[in-house]
Amino acid sequence: MLYGHGGDIYGLARSLGVSPKDIKDFSSNVSPLPIPAGLKQRLITGLEEIRALPEVDSFTLREALARRYGLPSQNFLIGSGTTEWIYSLPRVSGARRALIPLPTYSDYADAARAAGCEVETLGPWPDGDQNANVAILNSITNKAKYGDIVFICNPNNPTGRFIPTNILMDAIKIAQDTLWVIDESYAPFIGRDQETSLISLNLPSNLLILRSFSKLYGIPGLRLGYVLGASNLIKKLDSMSKPWAVNRLAQIAGEYLVKMSFHYEEDVREYCKVEKRRFLSRIKAEIPFLKPLEGSTHFILFKITPPWMAATITATLKNKQILVRDCSNFMGLSDEYLRISLRSMEDNDYLINQLKELNP
């Protein structure tokens, strides 16, 4: 397991002797807006329900998702975050080899190795521009064979690169003997499902889609996500899943959000679009040692110019109770890369002002 993901506010708070509430966390890619209105009260009113076991299979939440997407509930499985399925899928599928384009989220390779898979990394393609899409998919389809599993984060973490769904689906149909796992945890940040998700297309039998409640709604502490796919694949996964895998408060939150969150989702997308433009304008004008790479998400990958390196920047900011993401432990990247995720306008300006103090 990789220690060094973003969002470790508790570890930094302990080391500085402060409260976790004092940490400004730009390293975790969750929604920069407060949690959806009404969710806190719904959790409070549902607190008494933890005196009983949760629904064994999250039936009510699966039904809510089925209604939202116009699919049978048998196409959904709910888990304790997408991490549960990332680690289950290589083992349950019986895959012998995992194909993973770099740089990307490290748990894909960790999960594949834990299941005894050979891991073949492709790339890296550190830039977030669309020119890499053809190279990535051609590389995969040329190498893919029966018994392989492919992991693609779309949009990708940490680059923010997005592969249009029609192009991605064409590749999935070409490599039909390969299991494609598409992690769409960040797709809702950049557009509606009809524009950014494979959910809106027909589900081939070699595709599984991962979706997260943690990122878009800002609730990573509840640990809630789901996997979506053709019924034959979901049935196989279900046969290996654990009962009561999702706690009752997470189930309550999921049911509420699926029904009540459409306006919130639009608000997140609009805020991120406008604030990212403003934030990058200030960065480009005032922080010469950070060069933003093209990407479509609310988090931004920066290439650092000398004399600074990611380790020194992150260490300096930690002493100021600020977390940003040192990307040197992403395979395919180095100490030249840093990732920053948007927060409130006030916090973003505070970060820029702290970075300005680092100017040589």
Results as ranks from 00 to 15, higher is better:
residue 23 I to E: 03
residue 162 F to S: 04
residue 153 C to D: 15
residue 40 K to C: 03
residue 319 N to M: 09
residue 19 S to C: 06
residue 66 A to S: 14
residue 71 L to V: 12
residue 320 K to N: 01
residue 353 N to P: 03
residue 31 S to G: 11
residue 341 S to K: 12
residue 173 K to T: 05
residue 299 F to D: 13
residue 335 D to P: 00
residue 22 D to C: 01
residue 106 S to G: 13
residue 256 Y to M: 05
residue 293 L to C: 06
residue 77 L to Q: 01
residue 110 D to S: 10
residue 172 I to S: 03
residue 316 T to P: 06
residue 254 G to S: 00
residue 358 L to I: 04
residue 167 I to Q: 14
residue 324 V to M: 01
residue 259 K to C: 04
residue 284 K to M: 14
residue 281 S to C: 04
residue 126 P to S: 04
residue 338 L to C: 04
residue 359 N to Q: 11
residue 134 V to S: 14
residue 159 T to K: 00
residue 352 I to Q: 12
residue 298 H to T: 09
residue 340 I to Q: 09
residue 220 P to Y: 13
residue 293 L to S: 09
residue 33 L to Y: 13
residue 230 A to G: 00
residue 103 P to W: 00
residue 285 A to V: 02
residue 289 F to T: 06
residue 258 V to Q: 07
residue 185 S to Q: 14
residue 68 R to H: 13
residue 31 S to C: 12
residue 333 L to I: 03
residue 295 G to A: 12
residue 17 G to C: 05
residue 339 R to L: 15
residue 26 F to D: 06
residue 188 P to Y: 11
residue 4 G to F: 06
residue 300 I to D: 07
residue 314 T to G: 01
residue 254 G to Y: 00
residue 10 Y to W: 10
residue 79 G to W: 08
residue 281 S to L: 05
residue 172 I to M: 05
residue 151 F to L: 10
residue 235 K to W: 03
residue 96 R to Y: 10
residue 177 D to Y: 08
residue 215 K to T: 14
residue 41 Q to Y: 07
residue 194 Q to D: 06
residue 217 Y to F: 15
residue 192 R to S: 04
residue 206 N to R: 09
residue 230 A to Q: 03
residue 217 Y to W: 15
residue 13 A to T: 03
residue 113 R to L: 15
residue 337 Y to R: 07
residue 234 I to G: 03
residue 276 K to L: 10
residue 211 R to A: 07
residue 10 Y to V: 11
residue 218 G to Y: 13
residue 5 H to V: 10
residue 123 G to P: 09
residue 243 P to A: 01
residue 346 E to W: 08
residue 81 G to L: 11
residue 309 M to T: 13
residue 309 M to W: 12
residue 166 N to T: 05
residue 140 I to S: 08
residue 146 Y to V: 07
residue 262 F to T: 11
residue 20 P to L: 04
residue 136 I to T: 07
residue 6 G to T: 11
residue 117 C to V: 02
residue 236 K to P: 02
residue 9 I to W: 08
residue 309 M to D: 14
residue 42 R to Q: 01
residue 114 A to Y: 09
residue 220 P to M: 13
residue 331 M to Y: 09
residue 166 N to K: 08
residue 332 G to M: 07
residue 136 I to C: 09
residue 221 G to P: 07
residue 132 A to H: 06
residue 3 Y to L: 06
residue 307 P to T: 02
residue 339 R to G: 05
residue 34 P to C: 11
residue 100 I to R: 09
residue 335 D to T: 04
residue 76 F to Q: 03
residue 80 S to I: 01
residue 308 W to A: 12
residue 304 I to R: 11
residue 131 N to S: 14
residue 197 S to P: 00
residue 233 L to H: 10
residue 31 S to H: 13
residue 37 A to M: 12
residue 211 R to N: 14
residue 219 I to A: 09
residue 102 L to T: 04
residue 177 D to P: 00
residue 62 R to L: 00
residue 305 T to L: 12
residue 49 E to G: 02
residue 334 S to P: 07
residue 138 N to W: 11
residue 15 S to M: 05
residue 131 N to D: 12
residue 262 F to C: 06
residue 194 Q to H: 04
